[in-house]
Design a protein around this nucleic acid. Structure first.
Lengths: 224, 224
DNA sequence: TATAAAATAAGGAAAAACCCCTTTTCAATC
DNA sequence: GATTGAAAAGGGGTTTTTCCTTATTTTATA
């Protein structure tokens, strides 16, 4: 009997219970997958990843504290371009999916899929190198049709970077800037800088202006 | 050898992958748990629950489409008060936890706990009837100290009057309070009063809180 | 490796927001 | 006319936000 080659995986998700469940499911799917390590977020990933023993595929969440999925994928494609990233997220927002695809992830799964699909996705990413469902393709096409690209261009001229985006989301809450700085592990003065640069870019004059912009442009993650 | 009695469980969570993972973990913890059924949300729960074969414990998510955790628990305690509900959510907001505890849930777990704690929680709920960690107790005590319960009453007694409503709309803009006062032909100090009374009534702590409330409750008329 | 260009952080100060407590105004009612 | 209660306004203070300028640290790049 042939022993099939081991496929090394890593998991990045801030919910331990979900990670453990996922691992348990993966083990049921096939014995060829081996979990190298788990991480709570991007920072944790950077610390746990071992250049001498890289995972083949990383299962990546989107919303995480400290360093989110976008920043993590950006860092990964820069540092370890050979690693294939499969996003497993509960976010179904078109913008999020498109943004992730642009960053070069090999697949995007929603957390409400069948465990079977997880197996298929892993299989596909491992063999073909990618796994794009009709759902994802649909989102992409729709994004193109609705001229999302143009809006994106505007952002390319005047891009809101990842840090600023994360700050913007936190600014849409009752946290003070000091508390936001704390949450982002940055100096309040840096937050000061983010705010000022966003004020300029978004042409607003106050924090309320930031909130209104974020809501009008659906940059915050609560559905209402 | 004694065969231990089976404990019947049901899961209500909109993310299938999480549900399946949870089941897989529960099966690892002990063989005495039997999953009667899974549901995507409250509506689905109502359809799948069988009065002739009720679960002993229901693992319940909070944020779900169609019918969320709050509504589901409310319905359950009304219809099947004997069923013990253990919340498993990623929401760590005090307000959410307190609201759930008021509805009578037997425990509240965050999705980032160790799988081991899930086992302990199930065990405790099954034997003692409840599982409240220090984390939960802490949130409760803090909530009591801040007199959250009384404020709820105040809102029902004190509706938002016309002046306050007008102020609230203007507050959802980049106008300063001084400018709002000007527009409403009132002293800035009166505006000060409106703000304070709205802070109390709406249980918010800042102007951003006002804006978020107004938008969530569709009290401003711009379409987005 | 030197250098430019960013991101991050700091100091300081003025404006705005926030908070508590008191006083005035005014209309309703006894 | 006196009483009362709510709305409006004020006094005076703390905290947070906002806006300057400048310095340091990191990163990119020539």
């Amino acid at each position: 009997m042939l022993t099939q080659p081991t496929v090394n995986l890593a998991l990045v998700d801030d919910h331990k219970l979900f990670r453990k469940g996922l691992i348990s499911l993966i083990e049921l799917v096939s014995t060829k997958y081996h979990i190298l390590f788990e991480a709570d977020n991007g920072i944790d990933l950077q610390q746990k990843i071992d250049p001498k023993k890289l995972p083949d595929i990383i299962l990546m969440d989107v919303n995480m504290p400290k360093m989110d999925g976008f920043a993590s994928v950006e860092w990964l494609t820069e540092k370890y371009p050979s690693i294939k990233v499969l996003v497993v997220s509960m976010v179904e927002k078109e913008e999020t999916i498109v943004r992730m695809l642009k960053l070069g992830v090999k697949g995007y799964l929603c957390k409400d899929v069948e465990p079977k699909e997880l197996g298929e996705a892993l299989e596909a990413v491992n063999n073909k190198g990618y796994y794009y469902t009709d759902f994802i393709t649909g989102k992409l096409v729709h994004s193109l049709q609705n001229g999302n690209a143009e809006k994106q261009k505007e952002l390319e001229i005047n891009p809101i970077n990842n840090q600023e985006k994360q700050f913007l989301e936190l600014a849409c809450s009752e946290l003070t800037y000091a508390e936001i700085a704390d949450k982002m592990c940055l100096s309040p003065k840096t937050i000061d800088g983010y705010r000022n640069s966003l004020f300029e870019k978004l042409k607003v004059k106050s924090r309320v202006g930031l909130v209104l912009f974020a809501i009008k442009n659906r940059m915050v993650n609560w559905d209402f």
